[in-house]
Nucleic acid binder design. Structure first.
Lengths: 380, 380
DNA sequence: TTGATTTGTTCATTTTCTGAACTTAGTGTC
DNA sequence: GACACTAAGTTCAGAAAATGAACAAATCAA
């Protein structure tokens, strides 16, 4: 099932992946191909089991038959190295999670590869066809990943420097493997499976202990010249502010990350260990809690507003790990975005919020493998 | 000469435009084509007069012959509507200015079209072959231009709203015409003719009475979802700062644009009408001048640093109209960039500075027409 | 039932690319 | 200077991919 698709086949798969089920004629028009060519390519993909006919649409003339990706034409395993135990899921081509389990996290790549290899049979146990049609493994981690999606250039969390993790897992498990940064993996997942399917340019801002960010530009994940695109966490947001672990001062990370919020709370004498608790304190009128959330929310909103000004994305997706986003913090973020965006564009950029858990990261990881199956590695 | 090139021909033209003269074999490898296919396509383009053989490179085996774009295979007219009188130039495919003149500026699109139509014969007078091979007209203006490069969506300077300028000029002059925003035109010009030929992702920050910005991302001009990418001027840089004409407060525009610098100088009682004079005052120790330049420079530097953090471009090109960039202002800008970029990436992003005059804008305008000749309108 | 209408298929033809053999124009060695 | 060696570029038959036009199929509308 690793069969490489021809470039026309991939174009077709891509357009369906973006727009959902389409008739042959619609696709021919979208791709600028003749009906004759479309007919042939569609036939090939149906024979390969990648596409299948879905509903029939009646209008004037002969009804059209919509083609869609066959969700069970390929399966993917996704693993998130963001928590311990590490979630490990099996997903189909719709991003639906078919099976899940967990594996112990390690800092030793070899041990990780071993754990994955041992976990695979159990994950696939009850799904014989997934076993047969397993297309690849995706791994999401916190850190920098090179553009081949094979090497982890640097990860503070895992203590890595130039680790060829994909190769190690591939050799150990015998399955094609790709790795990706966590925020970028979620962005790909949203593009393939989620709310960004039809949006060509959007950004994901992922809020957790740290702050991550990824950009899709003109339908492609944009990594930047040195792989550093999306380093919103170290945008200076409070010039001359608190020192950051990166070496400079006033980074967004020092103000708006969950870690920073909790640290500041502790320093201010609040007995809170989670965002929800701080939110609760704020709702009861605790001035310190209100101040902290205001400061963090304004900073994040300002950074996002600047991102909108710079790049004019078609959507911003804010993912957050803890608590909810409908308290004071979320309100302030949204307000700050509105007040710092050109009035002309205010409200023009949809801001979506999504609470994520381990499954979302793992699904994001799986989507990296799915992307390689659908679009190909040279993201062309 | 408006003959549409086939898609393979355009690919080839594009790769030469990016990398300079290449041998057939090198291009075949770069494009993933067979030597046989390359041979044919190169022959076609040579026969069309688009390519020509240049130097011969000796090594082991048969020497290779580099092919390059024939600079005189097409000519372009570029007009800048940024000043009065408006510069109008004739350029070849290398961006070399062959002839120049000026025309009166107007706010009436019809009058502009008329002036261009009347100016054309004079511009082409001494260049019969340019007359024959004139491929298109490009117009640079301050304002928003839609993605078809035909309509000016909005221009404060010209007082326009949804003006189909390209169509008007095309119909009046009979020559294919494209329009573009000034900063974007300079970005295209740098990509085609200038220092960014081989850089896939870079940003231009243009410093004048206002502040403009344009991004090239993965080899393509990126316009953003609503055509608003690059609105760095209205990034909030001093939260709660001075009101901006856009309606919000503390925009970069209110601090670092030439207009703002001059206004603040006047308000502070400095008798200066140009940046050079303020620089001179600063160099003699005038505290107000030093303060103004520091504030403006830090703000611009911070904005550029944030841009680097967000997008990790391969180069930043700062263009400025007045004075020089090696005084206090430029120094502060560079310092502010350095201190606000992740230490890991500090110094990794080349910052280039270029002083521009009317010719540069007009050449940028011409490059829009050249881009449409070389790469095609659907910038694919 | 008939005609209009639009989808999708078939097939001969054209266009585009490939693989392999070949020609060409040099360098290096004895 | 003759000879092998090397790599660039060409040629040409054949494969692959796309097209255009004719046609078959499936419905609605009258």
């Amino acid at each position: 099932m690793n069969a490489l698709l021809t470039s026309s086949q991939r174009q077709l798969v891509r357009v369906i992946s973006e727009s959902g089920p389409l008739s042959r004629t619609e696709m021919a028009n979208l791709l600028g191909l003749s009906k004759a060519a479309m007919s042939g390519i569609a036939r090939e993909l149906i024979d390969l089991g990648v596409l299948h006919e879905t509903e029939t649409v009646y209008g004037q003339g002969r009804p059209s038959v919509r083609l869609d990706l066959h969700p069970e034409c390929a399966f993917f395993v996704g693993i998130s190295l963001l928590e311990d135990p590490a979630p490990m899921i099996l997903s189909d081509l719709n991003g639906k999670i078919i099976a899940r389990q967990a594996m112990p996290l390690s800092r030793d790549p070899q041990v990780i590869a071993q754990a994955i290899t041992e976990g695979l049979p159990r994950l696939l146990e009850a799904h014989p066809q997934a076993k047969e049609k397993l297309s690849g493994i995706g791994v999401a981690l916190s850190g920098f990943v090179d553009e081949t999606q094979s090497n982890c250039v640097q990860s503070t969390l895992l203590g890595w420097q130039d680790v060829p993790l994909a190769k190690i897992i591939r050799e150990c498990s015998g399955v094609e493997t790709f790795i990706e940064n966590d925020a970028k993996a979620v962005a790909v997942s949203e593009k393939l499976f989620g709310s960004a399917r039809e949006i060509q340019s959007f950004s994901v801002v992922s809020l957790g202990d740290g702050i991550g960010c990824a950009h899709f530009i003109d339908g492609k994940l944009y990594r930047g010249n040195h792989g550093g695109a999306g380093e919103i966490a170290h945008c200076t947001i409070e010039p001359g502010g608190s020192p950051c672990r990166c070496g400079k001062r006033g980074c967004l990370d020092t103000v708006s990350s969950m870690k920073a919020i909790k640290e500041v709370s502790r320093a201010e004498g609040l007995e809170c260990t989670s965002l929800s608790e701080i939110e609760h304190e704020a709702s009861t009128g605790n001035a310190a809690a209100i101040r902290i959330l205001h400061r963090a929310g304004s900073a994040l909103g300002l950074a996002i507003a600047n991102l909108i000004q710079m790049n004019d994305p078609g959507m911003i997706l804010i993912t957050h790990v803890e608590g909810s986003f409908d308290g004071l913090f979320g309100t302030v973020v949204n307000q700050a975005i509105e007040t710092n965006v050109l009035p002309r564009y205010a409200g023009q950029t949809p801001i979506r919020v999504k609470r994520v858990d381990g499954d979302v990261w793992a699904r994001g990881a799986a989507s990296i493998a799915a992307h390689n199956f659908l679009i190909g590695p040279n993201s062309n």
